[in-house]
């Protein structure tokens, strides 16, 4: 069996992860945007775990992003401003929410899942809006003060600390996700996505696997949400919004589902184009963004990753 083992790191992957370091030096004035890209990338990776690998479609993934964001925010507001502690609590809160709601997405087909996930996220949105005393409602959560990371690295005005912090968390979480998808558990998720009917006949407890990955995906989304809170020191209610759920789905489809890297590439392209277009055409930028998405979906099957794969095959 002399085949390349996909679980081993490809040289292109090392090169890819050198880019965030290069970016730090090349774009010192855009570190805030780069941190936002890292957060969007992590959020897209979290959706890829459940959609790209397990095949669970979701239009409400912002539910877990929002839970993470508010958990980190409320904790910091209460005086527990240590970022790492905040991340840990946000992860836990999102994972618990994911676990509890996972049972709702087990049953039913794709359409049911779209409705259920959408419903959960909108319920949380309304709840956050209603509980003004705790969440600040539409005004957002104020008074989020972050302490320095490990008591050493304070968040600065240029966003240096924020960028390095977000990128390191993204990398670590990516590395863990990469291990998970190449493990026997990851293979069984792909089995479920490709033929859910066959899996029980192999002895697979399909529901238990889906609960596990949904919980994991929720935890990842919670971390992304917490990073947004910690780097902006504010929580807006739109962390739960439908547009956030839809946007992360767009990012993932743009980048290509089922490869982990697709989510990251999608985030880089989407956020950059978004920034650029809204700069040159503040009124109609969404028109051009929409056009780009249509072109990608129609002509570049498998998104950016799919196109890159095809290109590397053609050359080889």
């Amino acid at each position: 069996m002399t085949r390349r083992d996909a679980s081993r790191w490809h040289p292109a992957e090392y090169a890819f992860w050198a880019l965030p370091i290069v970016a730090y030096f090349v774009f010192p004035d855009h570190l805030a945007l780069l941190a936002q890209i890292a957060i969007a990338a992590l959020f897209a990776v979290s959706l890829d775990l459940i959609l790209g690998y397990a095949g669970i479609v979701s239009l409400g993934h912002a539910a877990f992003f929002g839970i993470g964001a508010y958990a980190a925010g409320l904790l910091a507001q209460a005086g527990w401003g240590d970022p790492v502690l905040g991340l840990a609590c946000a992860t836990l809160a999102a994972a618990v929410t994911g676990f509890a709601t996972s049972f709702l997405v087990l049953r039913g087909a794709d359409l049911t899942r779209l409705m259920v996930t959408l419903g959960v996220a909108s319920m949380l949105y309304v709840l956050a809006n209603k509980l003004t005393d705790i969440t600040g409602g539409l005004d957002g959560l104020q008074g989020v003060e972050m302490k320095p990371i490990f008591g050493q690295f304070a968040f600065d005005l240029y966003g240096k600390t924020a960028y390095v912090y977000c990128t390191i968390i993204l990398f670590v979480m990516f590395w863990i996700a990469r291990r998970v998808v190449h493990s026997p558990f990851g293979l069984s998720l792909q089995g479920i996505r490709q033929n859910a009917v066959r899996m029980p006949a192999l002895g697979t407890p399909v529901n238990a696997r889906l609960v596990a990955v949904y919980t994991l995906g929720a935890a990842y989304a919670g971390i992304a949400g917490a990073l947004l809170t910690q780097t902006t020191q504010f929580v807006s209610i739109d962390v739960f919004s439908f547009s956030r759920s839809a946007e992360v789905l767009l990012i993932l489809v743009l980048g290509g589902i089922g490869s982990l890297y697709g989510g990251i590439l999608g985030a880089v392209v989407f956020m950059t184009v978004h920034e650029y277009l809204s700069g040159i055409d503040p009124l109609y930028w969404q028109f051009w963004l929409g056009l780009l998405l249509i072109v990608v979906v129609l002509f570049a099957r498998g998104g950016i990753m799919g196109t890159l794969r095809l290109a590397s095959k053609v050359r080889a």
């Binding site: 291990r179 190449h182 026997p184 192999l202 002895g203 596990a212």
Partner: peptide, 21 residues
């Protein structure tokens, strides 16, 4: 391999790669 993993009770292992089993 997917089916064998299930019989061997390792299909839920989530850290070591498939190739390490």
């Amino acid at each position: 391999i997917l089916a064998v993993n299930e019989r061997r009770g390792i299909a839920g292992h989530w850290w070591r790669p498939v190739s390490a089993h």
